[in-house]
Write a protein that binds this DNA or RNA. Structure first.
Lengths: 255, 255
DNA sequence: CAGTGGTCTAGACCACGCT
DNA sequence: GCGTGGTCTAGACCACTGA
């Protein structure tokens, strides 16, 4: 397998507050998800990446570590770093955001922001997030895409008190990355509920399916290590294209 | 919360081939698991750990990163590093049959047998059960009810070789109970896949919903402890009444 | 403001897998 | 031997938190 070349000398420099390792990871992630680099390919060595991006080896290694943890690449000591096989289906009961889930499935996630607003919590949202009715929450409504095809519409609610400046953040990417990286929240677990729903006219139009089509609905409440709910999200996924798998075990833990 | 002190100046030096960061992590892990440091406690700062172990900050941070990924500690920028709450029940979702699941949900399960036959495995069934195409399997098709209301139609396939006399058994109750008690199979785990499907005329009639209604489809492959698939079941549940919940947990690796 | 973790540099030497 | 990733140093500056 030939080593992959970087075509462009990608500039990664002090782009307003984005860390270098994050930018490096971004570029490499794109190479992989776009199919520019394919599973099994060896990517440039760490020294080459240092040269290409004009950053230190520590920075390159930190970027690579994040990609390893995402399952996109793996390292072989004494040999090189390689593009991993895409994980076919999400089987582990691991809590992943949309961006992370799709990356792990080996498709390229994207999103279009439909709405970002500060709104008073409805009764339902208040109950889910353990806040008072009328208390401010941030609503984030996004159209989600995989490989440029619309796959679902997600409406997330985050307590305003938890991250007041979220309104100013770039919400086109991973919300979880923001919550963890910028707001230092320690997401711990979530409860997912799956059921069948119906798409209304506008939703169907956005998802490019006939009005009245069935949707695979996912409701999730995400809580941090100290038990605080930080996100309630309802996702209407295209019923014809989305599925979820889980591993269940019989063992009643300790008979 | 008072900052925890290190009592001993733990030696971490070139212990034959064990890396420094690993030794540092080992010592800290022991402090936490032994209860010497308790959840919520702040551990020594990175600079203090450098001093204590006489290693560089990079090494300390790498050690801490491994503990973060293990969920033992978490960091708060500008504040410190703290011992995490132990993860309460990281038990993966429990594998239950229909009868067990509904009993646990507090409703009365019942079923009507629609068909029990010995049939040759189709290509799809053969693949799922790891048998040869055409090899005999037992098909069990049942209408499932809760509190006397039809809720779903289940079609299960069990390799004939696994329990040849299943045809003579009473299949109106729990199949899992039969497999475990009578056939001494040790059911271990299953993979569930959920997606949206469509009900055909006859299925809709049995479920007492309009033809063409959406169904919540569950596909399950159940395997025993030795990895043998013993059941492949596809369930068309009423989309208007059935939902499934799962607990997911975050296990960040890096960041 | 001082103190914390977050990011980053420019080196160094080691352990490993190949030829 | 040579090139790879693995480990490690001794600094530096930044961003965030709390008093």
């Amino acid at each position: 397998m030939t080593k992959m070349e970087m075509q462009t000398r990608d500039k990664v420099k002090k782009r307003q507050g984005i860390s270098l390792y994050y930018q490096v990871a971004e570029v490499l992630r794109e190479k992989i998800l776009s199919g520019h680099w394919r599973p099994g390919d060896q990517i440039p060595t760490e020294d080459e990446l240092c040269e290409l991006f004009q950053v230190s080896r520590t920075t390159v290694r930190y970027a690579l570590s994040t990609l390893v943890s995402e399952g996109l690449i793996y390292r072989k000591q004494g040999q090189g770093t390689y593009v991993a096989e895409p994980t076919l289906e999400q089987v582990s009961p691991q809590l992943l955001g949309f961006t992370e889930e799709m990356t792990q499935r080996g498709v390229r996630p994207d999103s279009r922001i439909l709405a970002v607003e500060k709104v008073p919590a409805s009764e339902k949202v208040a109950e889910k997030l353990h806040v008072q009715v009328g208390e401010f929450v941030i609503l984030i409504k996004r159209l989600r895409l995989t490989d440029d095809e619309p796959i679902g519409i997600q409406t997330a609610y985050v307590p305003f008190a938890v991250c007041p400046s979220l309104l100013n953040d770039d919400l086109s990417g991973s919300l979880y990355a923001l919550l963890e990286r910028k707001y230092q929240l320690h997401l711990d677990n979530a409860k997912d509920t799956y059921y069948v729903g119906m798409l209304r006219d506008e939703e169907a139009r956005l998802l490019e399916v006939p009005s009245g089509s069935a949707a695979f609905v996912v409701e999730r409440i995400t809580v941090t290590s100290d038990g605080t709910p930080v996100e309630y999200v309802r996702s209407f996924m295209r019923g014809d294209r989305y599925k979820v798998s889980h591993q269940l075990s019989r063992n009643k833990s300790f008979g």
